[in-house]
Amino acid sequence: MIPRQTGILPSSMMKVLLDEQGVETALRQLADEIVASIPAASQIGMIGIRRRGVDLAKRLLTLLDERGVADIAYGCLDITLYRDDLAEIGPSAVVRTTEIDFDVAGRYIVLVDDVIFTGRSVRSALAAIIDLGRPKAIRLAVLVDRGGRELPIQPDFVGIRTAENDDHVAVLLQETDGVDRVEALA
C-alpha cells in the first residue's frame, strides 16, 4: 500500500464531493448503466487507464460479475507514449506497461478512467486501443466528469458531474490512497 501524500491542501480547504458510500453508490450505478447498454451476446473487454482507471475497472468488473455479466476480458492501458504533451512534460513522463492480453478486434470495449477533464487522455487512449486492433465499439465510463473539454469527446457513463467552479478535483481510492473519496477545493 502506498501512503497517500496528505497535506497537499489543508482539509479545511477541501470539500467532499463523494464519500466512501458515495463512491460505492456511483460505481453501482455505473455498473447498472453499463449492463443495461451492452448489446446482447457482445464480447466485452474492459480497459482501465493507468493508474486509477485500472483500480476502478477492476471494481466495475466485480460489480458486472455480480450482475451476471461474466467472461469479460480485462486489461490496463498506459497512454504515456500517445500523449500530445510529451514535449512539455519532459522526464516526468513515466512509461508503464500496457497489459491487454486479449484481441480487441470485434470486442465491445468499455474504457474506464477516474476523471475526464480536457478529454486529451481519452483521445490518447482511443489512439492506443485502435493501434491494437479494430474494436466493435468503444464506450467510456468515468467516475467524475469535470467538464472543461478541449476535444469533442464525451463519456457514455458518468458517476458524478462536478459544479462549474469546482477546482483541484481529486479522486482517492482505497487501492492507492487508503480511502475512497472524491474531493475538490472548497
Binding site: S92, V94, T97, A170
Partner: peptide, 30 residues
Amino acid sequence: MTGVRHPAQDAKRLVATASGTERESVAWPH
C-alpha cells in the same frame, strides 16, 4: 492549476513493474 501537487508530478514517482509491485523510481535527467 496552482498549489495542488499531484503525486505523479513529483520527482520521485511510483513505477509499476511487470511483477506488479510498485516502487519508487527517479526521473531520467540525461
